[in-house]
């Protein structure tokens, strides 16, 4: 990779200042960015590590929800969120492999918004709120297409606030080599309705399957999805699966998630 300056601030204020300069990029767990930099797909002049800032780490529950610090690793979410939001913890425990989960963070995953990442589906289906160093962003406004988010340059995700649903589950059809989601569906049932978010399938990144949400709000059972289908238009086609295959998987995995949610 190209040379860069590395800084590791100990406070959010210092990190914000360091990222206010052109050419600076935040570094979370690095499980995507470092690989991209090795390939010279990304070449920041300065990397600002967010892993040394205590206020960005941890899981805490309250007010009917759970808040997760942006620099909390997948392994920590899998362990510490299990008591508050089991479906979210289970999702975190399926990302990558154990060593990746010890470095990768929820904030890094969301800021990157890989179209096959797991976390965006949980955040969107839960109707979570992304908190940054300057504002709060609703999940419905945050994800803006493949590798694109509402974040401004230099803006830092500090935490994610999840309302905890009555029932929820994540069903992932895993790409066996990368362990990314070939298609993954997170279903969350709240008192006022059901939200369904799909990752890995669409060329537009994570999306809500609104027809399924309406059907499941009326009748929360896998059978409620029988008459629905997802068009293949706009689905990802690659060597792992055609657009038609992924469109089919969306329905299959949604059904599995509904059954798993109970």
């Amino acid at each position: 990779m190209y040379a860069f300056d590395f800084v590791k601030p100990g406070t959010l204020a210092e990190a914000s200042e360091a990222l206010s300069h052109d050419g600076a990029l935040p570094l979370a767990g690095g499980q995507t960015l470092i690989a991209a930099m090795k390939q010279r797909l990304n070449a920041p002049e300065k990397l600002v590590s967010l892993t040394g800032i205590p206020e960005l780490k941890g899981v805490c529950a309250g007010d009917g929800g759970v808040t997760i610090g942006a620099a909390t690793t997948h392994a920590a979410v899998a362990a510490q969120a299990a008591a508050y939001y089991p479906a979210l913890a289970a999702l975190a425990g399926q990302i990558g492999d154990p060593a990746v989960r010890n470095r990768g963070t929820i904030g890094g995953s969301l800021a990157n918004n890989d179209p096959a990442a797991c976390y965006p589906s949980a955040v969107l289906a839960s109707g979570a709120t992304i908190v940054t160093n300057t504002r709060e962003i609703a999940a419905d406004d945050f994800f803006q297409g493949m590798f694109t988010t509402a974040l401004h340059d230099g803006e830092i995700i500090t935490s994610v606030k999840f309302p905890v649903p009555q029932k929820a589950a994540y069903a992932k059809f895993q790409q066996p080599a990368s362990r990314f989601a070939l298609t993954g569906v997170f279903v969350a049932k709240f008192a006022d309705g059901v939200r369904v978010a799909v990752t890995g399938a669409s060329e537009s990144g994570v999306f809500r399957w609104t027809e399924a949400e309406a059907a499941l709000t009326a009748n929360f059972s896998a059978a409620a999805l029988d008459g629905l289908s997802v068009p293949a238009d706009g689905m990802i086609g690659d060597l792992h699966g055609t657009p038609e295959y992924r469109a089919h998987l969306v329905k299959v995995m949604t059904k599995r998630a509904v059954v798993a949610a109970g």
């Binding site: 470092i34 690989a35 060593a99």
Partner: peptide, 9 residues
């Protein structure tokens, strides 16, 4: 904690 040292600065 086990980490992949090729993917950590």
């Amino acid at each position: 904690q086990a980490v992949k040292s090729c993917s950590m600065l």
